[in-house]
Design a protein around this nucleic acid. Structure first.
Lengths: 340, 340
DNA sequence: TAGGATTGTGGAAGCGTTTGCAGGCGTATG
DNA sequence: CATACGCCTGCAAACGCTTCCACAATCCTA
């Protein structure tokens, strides 16, 4: 492994000049620059990032804290974040905080603090006030996907609004008997997504003058099997069968559609189903959905933290940015067959 | 931010002793150790990893190169790797190499080399000889998931064997007319998985004395929609309908099942379907499958590289470790209705 | 043509750790 | 009682860069 010294002597300049030539900071004549570059090239020299971050105080790393990896929403965020970071010359340190509280503490108190990252992106992190405190105390740019969360800049779709949009679509089609299958309110892993989507649903119902029957909300797991089970349960009893279901996520919606099919119900003739996400599978199932783009959310979060890093004094435009969530109509929703 | 100096003076010892006390290397009386620990605690001191890696030459980072994130197999690997790394006190730097060749080169030549990682785990990476060369030239432990790949230690299931197992299961049930829906041979993203699974299928057919008709292999995308399209195409024509299909991945198999249902065929009465993976959705669809555990593959890869790092001279037991892939029988496979 | 601004380069001082070496002390060994 | 050895600690030298400062040379501009 050759050091900067070797490059310097091969190029016939000082270490200082090599550093300037390679980093592009400060004045270097273009002639020396090429000489240095060639010398570095021929020696296979690359700067030691530990040495350079020791003096500059920057690591070129961004930490990403995420509760799950293997789910479309979260995977897409990571992809977006990774892409954006790599584009700007930063590396991504991944922390999966799905597990024990012990590990969580360790990540917070130890890893993140240990001068290893320049900034932090926290994804739908149910964060305690102390933890938020800690993050802020790092003095490093932070962005949250999800939220809003007091004190740290966050971004994401407006979950209440998205849920209302979805429910309103069903109402507009003439449905009056609409159930909501959402996440379990007790096992919130994030910024109360489940509660918010339920809220949007309730708001829409109320605006339409429909009385809410608490049996109309069915909590389940946020995946296809969860939707399937809920669907089987709801649709199994013909007397208590709604004309439409608003599922809090596309995967849940798809599970419901599968359950409906199995019970011999046609969608949308016997049952309209709408979800949120515009999941890659939505198209195949003809699922009407509210689109959101987690990869773009990741990119925006990166933009926020990197700009704070590179443009001193820059701040995210708002405490919380509400991203667009638009209705995509497919074939899983239609007018109700029987009007109640 | 307080440095080691502050801790030293607060504890009334030298920097050297603080370093030894905190790192656990060298002799330190237990009394001073606690004094130092408390001092560090009260000052909120954490060592600067750049400073320490500058002198030790280790970063406590492991780089993971992976072509996709948002797919069950790959997501699970990342989860396994992350868990194992964090357990051992290492951090994970994620490189998603799905994109342009330019970016690929950049990662190889720049990021990985730049003294940023102690070891590399490459997941199903279609790697050129020069790239393998480069990786080895780093002089850092490397493990590949997938393979085998000459020169670097790899691990994974035996794809040929898994495919044969799957096909044999169908043969054993009495099927003679078995089609294979696999990946597109031209768009291999990895260690020729598609070719291998096709090969295992052919081997099983041959051993059973069944002549292979090249129309019996249908390539498609490796996901549910891909399987669905292939299924529609294959099953749409009643005259050319097999009694069983071996899908190269569970997601493809699920797509086929959905297509079959839509065409009014029952599984397994009219059509048996088997896949590979034991994907989380397999159970819901009653899908018979060959199980593999990507998360465990990730853990093993971590074990390999970390042991090389921490036990000088240690080497992975073999060039390539074949992990178990076991048949899980569910309800998507059964005896053929009509014997051909 | 003088003087300031701009450009280009080198010397040297760190950045915050780890670790080799040396020395001091206490205890076991001959 | 002298010697050896194990334990504990401090000093100071790296580790490989970046950047401040000084200085020189060149270029404008008045």
């Amino acid at each position: 492994m050759s050091g900067i010294e070797d490059v310097a002597s091969l190029a016939g300049v000082s270490k200082a000049t090599v550093s300037r030539a390679l980093s592009g900071r400060g004045y270097v004549s273009s002639e020396t620059r090429t000489r240095v570059t060639e010398a570095a090239q021929s020696l296979g020299y690359v700067v030691s990032s530990s040495a350079s971050s020791l003096v500059t105080g920057r690591t070129s790393n961004v930490g990403v804290i995420i509760p799950v990896i293997n789910q479309w929403f979260f995977g897409s965020i990571i992809e977006g974040v990774e892409r954006a970071l790599l584009d700007r010359g930063y590396d991504l340190m991944l922390y999966n905080l799905t597990k024990s509280h012990a590990e969580r503490t360790r990540v917070f108190e130890y890893f993140l603090v240990r001068k290893r990252v320049d900034a932090v992106i926290a994804v739908t992190l149910e964060i305690t006030p102390e933890e938020a405190e800690q993050l802020l105390a790092l003095g490093k740019p932070i962005a949250g996907i999800g939220g809003p969360l007091a004190g740290i800049p966050t971004l994401g779709i407006d979950d209440v609004e998205a849920a209302r949009l979805a429910t309103e679509h069903l109402l507009l089609l003439g449905h009056r008997d609409i159930m909501h299958v959402g996440g379990d309110l007790d096992e919130q892993m994030d910024f109360h997504v489940h509660t918010k989507r339920l809220k949007g649903y309730l708001q829409a119902l109320e605006a339409a003058g429909i009385r809410y029957d608490e049996k109309s909300f069915v909590p389940t797991h946020f995946d296809i099997p969860g939707g399937y089970r809920a669907g089987k349960q709801i649709l199994g009893d013909p007397r208590r069968r709604p004309t439409a279901i608003f599922a809090a996520a596309d995967e849940v919606a798809i599970g419901i559609i599968l359950a409906a099919r199995e019970l011999g119900l046609s969608v949308p003739e016997d049952l309209s189903v709408i979800g949120i996400d515009n999941h890659p599978l939505a198209e195949m199932f003809g699922l009407t959905s509210i689109e959101q783009r987690p990869d773009e959310q990741g990119e925006l979060a990166v933009d926020w933290v990197i700009r704070q890093l590179e443009e001193p004094g820059w701040m995210p435009p708002t405490e919380h940015a509400y991203l667009p969530a638009t209705l995509i109509i497919r074939s899983s929703t239609g007018r109700p067959r029987r009007t109640s």
